[in-house]
Design a protein around this nucleic acid. Structure first.
Lengths: 136, 136
DNA sequence: TGTTTATCCTATTAAATCTATAGGGTAATT
DNA sequence: AATTACCCTATAGATTTAATAGGATAAACA
């Protein structure tokens, strides 16, 4: 299940990307427009800034804005920052690999085999779509 | 993230499917072979029996066994029974649909648009693979 | 320079979900 | 009758997620 954090983060990025100009947008405006708890959104935008997706400006007329063009923001990196691993089990994760406690041999594991295919199919979608592609 | 329940359930089904005969296998044997808590596995196998994947036999020589041939058990149904919805958000789920509280219009939602693609790609994998296909 | 605006940051709590265990009941076999 | 092994409910512990609280910091503007 997609976390609210990821959902809200995506919505916020979309809202910023659909803006005609690149002027800073206040948290309050995004929160109201997307029906998100303002304080919760605040922490999400903060992490998106720290990971290099957003810039911010303090004081009057301040807010958040996209640093890069929406077409240069692939979904793979957005999902990994907000949601974490794309893989459903750590043993098939490219960026968050971890061995299973049980399971002596991954190559003999049916779950590994299946989840490898699922990961690849999800990865293909995320790699083929940027923020610009999911604008409505 | 895939739940342990799904992981263990899949492993148990695989273990039963890889058996040469269709004789009942005891919970204890599966639990030991797959490194699963026996009591936890017990509840998982119970639900797999109730949903029609397994048969069981009590008393000495008893245990669980596959009712159908592994090649007739599609991953879609296994995943839905063990894990729940295949979709990552309820608003794109075929079998567990639910409208989002926020989001006045699904057709205008970028998350919806993206997750629809992800669901379809996962669905294709699950539909094209039966229990027989993931045996190692 | 002081007030207002709005982001920045840490800590904490509330809620939900997942994982596992406890403890006994029931049915079949020998 | 004794043993074996599944059946079933309830509950506790652990982890994760979602949200809130409360103030610190920095920029704009009169």
């Amino acid at each position: 299940m997609l976390s609210k954090k990821t959902k809200y983060g995506l919505k916020a990025l979309t809202y910023l990307a659909s803006r005609p100009d690149k002027e800073p947008v206040q948290i309050a405006e995004i929160a109201e427009h997307e029906n998100i708890s303002q304080k919760f959104l605040e922490s999400i935008l903060l992490s998106l800034r720290k990971t290099g997706f957003l810039g911010s400006k303090k004081g009057k007329g301040g807010g958040y804005y996209l640093i890069k063009d929406a077409s240069e923001i692939p979904m793979t990196t957005v999902i990994r920052v907000l949601e974490g691993p794309i893989a459903m089990v750590p043993c098939v994760s490219l960026n968050f690999y971890e061995k299973c406690d049980d399971c002596p041999d991954e190559n003999e594991c049916s779950v590994h085999k299946l989840m490898l295919m699922v990961r690849d199919s999800a990865l293909e979608v995320y790699r083929n779509n940027t923020l610009a592609d999911i604008l409505t």
